[in-house]
């Protein structure tokens, strides 16, 4: 079970305190995208914390979380 730290309010908690919300990006950009056996960027909601949707990069096989970020504060150029 993932341990996630919300980049907005800073709370670190079990994944059951959060809600996953599909691939990061706007809806039309993420539809029908194939998920690689690699790092994926996803939306997660700090459901039991501050209520903010944020971005998270997670390796789908070893489950390592490599980054989390607030929307608009992506660790790369451009919004998505």
């Amino acid at each position: 079970m993932l341990m996630i730290r919300c980049p907005v309010c800073g709370i670190a908690a079990d994944e059951t305190e959060f809600t996953s919300g599909g691939l990061y990006g706007r809806l039309e950009e993420t539809e029908n995208r194939v998920i690689p056996r690699d790092v994926v960027r996803e939306w997660w909601l700090c459901a039991r914390g501050c209520g903010t949707w944020f971005g998270m990069a997670r390796h789908v096989v070893n489950q390592r979380v490599t980054a989390t970020w607030a929307a608009g504060d992506e660790p790369w150029d451009g919004r998505h």
Binding site: G21, W43, L45, W53, G72
Partner: peptide, 9 residues
């Protein structure tokens, strides 16, 4: 909230 935050910030 999902739409406000993710699609129309």
């Amino acid at each position: 909230e999902r739409w406000r935050q993710r699609e129309w910030p």
